[in-house]
Design a protein around this nucleic acid. Structure first.
Lengths: 258, 258
DNA sequence: AAAACTCTATAACTTATGTTATGAATTTTT
DNA sequence: AAAAATTCATAACATAAGTTATAGAGTTTT
């Protein structure tokens, strides 16, 4: 997975909004791949912000630790996601990030990012759009953690994952791998691990979710989405047309500079 | 309140990172002020995304409406905030936005934003940093809605407001105006209005919050922050040093282009 | 292969918060 | 100024989710 394969950049590319040089610059952010182990910490809460990462392989999550020792998992990162944009413009990390399984990340520095932004407004806007989309998932979780039952929360969580994984071809026969313990899912959804277990049992009894260890199957994804009151607008991948005209604006601006 | 007065741009300015032309460009985003009434809708969920707004005067909030008719309030906007960056890169609004009291907004278009980004990486980064800071508040609310008691949630909400209002000089004698009904606070915190009322009573009994209609007084803000387990990192206004060197990177890049 | 862990399911019990209802206090409309 | 509509406080009751405990199933270590 590269950034260039992200649907946002795919659309820009197809519409001819990306020059060869821009594609090259974007790929330069992924120049320094690094293997990371399962459970490895990428950074801690409160560390100095020095780098962002493209996640090439593996799963990761960001989290906050509370005084009580409880964890709140903020965001699950899948291959192709950018990790750490949440901290852009802050001196210190607002959240820790850990790998779930082993994988590969490509760190890039503040300065590299600035250079890309400075070189191309199109690349800058594309990266911001990707970051905004990631935040949108978090916003959506606030809605359902605040207002929905445990069943709906878990159903929503599983269905969102199902959609995200589908897009990177990680779903076969409505089945995917979910390398999270029930405790971790509880930490993401604001539920106790016991209640996550109870809720899985209920979802199984209703025929909505079959699970065997890390294998999860959704026999009727539509029914699951419906009971979770899932609204997929926030996962919409299509970018608005003004975006595609960016390079036009850009050329006009260059004319003006000249 | 102008964008230029936002702490992010104030810092850039003081460190000499903003040219006169850049300041001018930034102010051009605020060229079309419009009076808006109390309770006026700025846009609905699912509207086409056409503009963003600088909120000059008054309070606003963004929200999602659920199938059940319940509302989840996502974010409170105070003067100096940018409204709508959450939807950047999406075709449709993910949330509605309404004014709370009357005020003034300055809408600017996608295209105007692109032109600013294209003109200056410094301005682009500054605006992104402001948007990231706003999202950070939302992320923080996920943490306490997911993991904290009603008392802590309300305490956190009030203390965060107290800090944000302090920065725009809207707090006198630890007292500020809060033009939200208890039902609306419930909608923000994922609580019923009845329980918000109960919780206010508890906070009063503990001497942490005095309230008379829209006047709210925090006799001991530090104690309130403590009981809410408030961590103020996410409201930190200082931007990291690579930011301040942006114009240096920029000039280097221009040299390379030449 | 046994031992030690970790994860999961389920039960019993507790508690925080939701729901419904009522009356008083404010605010808005007529 | 009266009437109508909100908003707020409080009570009584209902319930979803938390907590603690136990045992089995899987996994890892020895």
């Amino acid at each position: 997975m590269t950034l260039l394969k992200n649907p946002v950049f795919q659309q820009l590319r197809k519409s001819g909004a990306l020059s060869a040089e821009e594609e090259k610059r974007l790929l330069e952010l992924e120049e320094k791949p690094r293997r990371v182990d399962a459970c490895e910490t990428l950074w801690h809460e409160n560390d100095r912000v020095d780098a962002f990462c493209v996640l090439k392989q593996g799963w990761a999550y960001s989290f906050r630790t509370l005084d009580s020792g409880a964890k709140q998992i903020l965001k699950l990162y899948l291959p192709g996601d950018i990790i750490g944009m949440r901290d852009f413009g802050f001196s210190r990390r607002l959240a820790g990030v850990e790998m779930i399984d082993e994988g590969v990340v490509c760190p890039f520095s503040h300065q590299q990012f600035f250079e890309v932004v400075d070189y191309s407004a199109t690349l800058a806007s594309g990266i911001v759009a990707i970051a905004v989309r990631q935040q949108a998932m978090l916003t959506e979780r606030l809605v359902y953690v605040g207002r929905h039952t445990a069943q709906q929360r878990l159903a929503h969580f599983l269905y969102e994952l199902y959609l995200r994984l589908s897009r990177i071809d990680a779903v076969k026969d409505n089945t995917f791998s979910l390398p999270l313990s029930q405790e971790q899912m509880g930490d993401a959804l604001g539920l106790s691990s016991v209640h996550v277990s109870r809720t899985f049992t209920m979802l199984r009894d209703e025929g909505l979710v079959l699970r065997d260890r890390q294998r999860v199957q959704l026999p009727d994804p539509a029914a699951l989405a419906c009971m979770a009151e899932f609204s997929d607008a926030y996962l919409d991948e299509s970018i608005p047309s003004p975006f595609l005209d960016l390079h036009v604006i850009r050329s006009r601006a260059q004319l003006r500079h000249a």
